[in-house]
């Protein structure tokens, strides 16, 4: 299990803890297409972390099945299964007694890679997560900042080029600026590596930003809705989903769309506010409100005005 991304399928999976009446995950079926990010979201107690840990059997289950690339996780040797799935957690869990390089080469070492190959891979990954290898290879985790640690954690999970990754609120403990930066880094890296990622978060905005598809779970691990962010925002399946995604779903929806998608009005007089075509509509709206302007000029990559977006046009969209 390595290399190309693999499809992950939950097939009627139920997880019950002994002594508890309600199931933690109930009859969960969903398919994560290969190379996509699936965010598991929901209130606490909705079983999102449990559902994720069933995949690498950190939590075992009896009912239903999960397959990765068509192979049942239950048919695989436990350690082999885990070594084939990248795993990233909120507290990172770097080994304090190992250098950055040693941490990243954990799984390659477990799999018996040659030293030379491992070393090359470490440098490649450090480069990928934007940490200069020369500078970082020999550091210990205690010599890294929170954000740097999570980058190393990500590199470690990617080390043996697993087809699937599990990420459990990886950015939850970071400050907002670092978090935002790492979210975009993840998208950039995903653009390059194309893994199948199951990403647990309680932050719906993070899910909207990162996910190709979002699975919203409710109490008892019941799947409330599984769809693309846009469709969930546009058509919440029920009251629970609607409440969960919040009363500002109109605004959230705008964050999924970019100014390029709009038909622009012709230039009309002098407008100070400018934005490029790949700005999200949400950011454009925010700028207009911030500057007390009812319109904004969209410019092309050379900075030449292409047309005007008005407040009214945005409001009409969000209906």
């Amino acid at each position: 299990m390595s290399g190309a991304a693999a499809e992950i399928v939950f097939d009627r999976v139920t997880k019950r803890y002994p002594g508890r009446a309600e199931a933690a995950v109930s009859d969960l079926s969903l398919t994560v297409p290969a190379g996509e990010i699936c965010c598991l979201v929901g209130p606490s107690g909705a079983g999102k972390t449990t559902a994720m840990k069933l995949v690498n059997r950190l939590i075992d289950f009896e009912e239903g099945d999960i397959t990765i690339g068509g192979e049942s996780v239950r048919s695989l040797d436990l350690t082999e299964l885990r070594r084939g799935i990248g795993y990233v957690i909120q507290q990172v869990g770097l080994f304090p007694h190992m250098t950055v390089a040693e941490n990243i080469s954990t799984v390659p070492r477990l799999r018996g890679w040659e030293k030379g190959r491992t070393r090359l891979r470490v440098d490649e990954l450090l480069d990928l997560v934007d940490l200069p290898a020369e500078d970082y290879r020999a550091r210990f985790p205690s010599q890294l900042s929170g954000g740097e640690r999570q980058r190393v954690g990500l590199a470690r999970a990617l080390a043996a080029d697993p087809p699937a990754m599990l990420m459990d609120e990886p950015f939850g403990a970071l400050d907002p600026i670092t978090r935002a930066r790492l979210q975009h880094e993840l998208l950039r890296i995903q653009g390059a590596v194309r893994k199948t990622i199951i990403f647990v978060t309680h932050d719906i905005d993070e899910a909207i930003l990162l996910a190709d598809r979002i699975a919203i779970l409710r109490e008892g691990g019941v799947l409330a809705q599984y769809d693309t962010p846009a469709r969930i925002l546009e058509h919440p399946a029920d009251d629970f989903v609607e409440r969960f995604i919040g009363s500002d779903r109109g605004i959230k929806l705008l964050s999924l769309r970019r100014l390029d998608e709009l038909e622009l009005a012709p230039l009309d007089g002098a407008i100070d506010l400018r934005a490029s075509g790949d700005t999200t509509m949400r950011d454009a709206l925010s700028q207009m409100i911030t500057h007390g302007s009812r319109s904004l000029v969209v410019v092309d990559s050379e900075g030449q005005p292409r047309g005007v977006v008005t407040l009214d046009a945005l409001a009409a969209l969000a209906e």
Binding site: R82, R83, G153
Partner: peptide, 17 residues
């Protein structure tokens, strides 16, 4: 730390390892 142990388990370390 528990997170270190969880990471070890998640990456496929056996109990002995």
């Amino acid at each position: 730390p528990p997170d270190v142990l969880e990471a070890a388990r998640g990456m496929g370390y056996t109990r002995g390892q």
